[in-house]
């Protein structure tokens, strides 16, 4: 199977500064890849390289398709709520390159935007002002904006950052259902392993200037997590779900 995204021995960074080195990563259709690492580890650099916003300093980053196949979902806090835009206005931005320069969007474009809102579970928020939405609703809005262009890959940057438990659960369920029902390839960037471990099939760990990709089963079984995090870490299972915790000593306190 041809990969949708291929990084081959890529060095990534800015100017002469290499943030990540020797990055080799292939993303296949239908993949669900978690990209995990501590703050400042280079996740954003990897994301920018995949989006084509920065060029590799060495090696290559290839997206064989000539179309825009990646639907990017940035962190919702980067969007300024001062803009007087409705949810529909923002979703239509995903179609801007297909709209005529002057005039209102055509009925078919609005219908596509409404379908994307439906898929994101916020059809009822169509005419609401973006600034008046909750964190979860904003996140669903920008997911709908990515979906409207009918991407093959959904690339989400910290989609549950700063959310409460119901919000986080709702967003992760939505992403999971988009992946399962639409066979959408998902790349989910998070600094929390617990956010992705129960959803992603593979996890790319970004740390110490390197990227190491493991299958979920390897993550759960191996002692690599302790190496990656530089501390004793254990993976426990509760009610068919995995939870990553610092290893406890005999008194039950973190070791």
């Amino acid at each position: 199977m041809e990969p949708l995204i291929r990084l081959a021995d890529a060095a990534l960074g800015y100017g002469k500064v290499r943030v990540l080195d020797g990055v080799t990563l292939e993303v296949y259709p239908g993949d669900y890849l978690g990209i995990v690492g501590p703050n400042g580890s280079g996740k954003t650099t990897l994301l920018k390289a995949i989006l084509g916003l920065i060029r590799p300093l060495a090696g290559s980053v290839q997206i064989p398709s000539s179309e825009h196949i990646i639907g990017y979902v940035p962190q919702r806090d980067t969007l300024d709520t001062i803009f007087p835009l409705t949810v529909l206005d923002i979703v239509l931005m995903g179609l801007f390159d297909t709209l005529s320069p002057i005039g209102r969007p055509a009925r078919r474009h609005i219908a596509r935007a409404e379908q994307a809102l439906e898929a994101a579970g916020i059809a009822d928020l169509r005419d609401r002002h973006f600034g008046s939405l909750s964190g979860g609703q904003k996140q669903r809005t920008i997911i709908a904006r990515a979906l409207v262009a009918d991407p093959k890959v959904l690339l989400l940057d910290e989609p549950t950052n700063g959310m409460d438990l119901p919000g986080e659960t709702g967003i992760l369920s939505l992403i999971r259902s988009l992946h399962d029902e639409r066979n959408l390839t998902v790349l989910l960037v998070s600094h929390l392993l617990n956010t992705v471990i129960n959803h992603a099939r593979r996890i790319a760990f970004v740390a110490n200037g390197r990227v190491e990709t493991l299958d979920r089963s390897e993550v759960i079984a191996s002692s690599k997590l302790s190496d990656i995090y530089g501390m004793d870490v254990e993976v426990t299972r509760h009610d068919h779900r995995y939870l990553v915790l610092p290893a406890a000593n005999e008194g039950g306190q973190p070791a």
């Binding site: 916003l53 825009h68 990017y72 940035p74 923002i90 801007f96």
Partner: peptide
């Protein structure tokens, strides 16, 4: 108008498109 609005509101997403 659409380009100016998109780039002003979400430059990173616009760049990715």
């Amino acid at each position: 108008y659409k380009q100016f609005l998109f780039v002003s509101f979400d430059a990173e997403m616009a760049a990715s498109r």
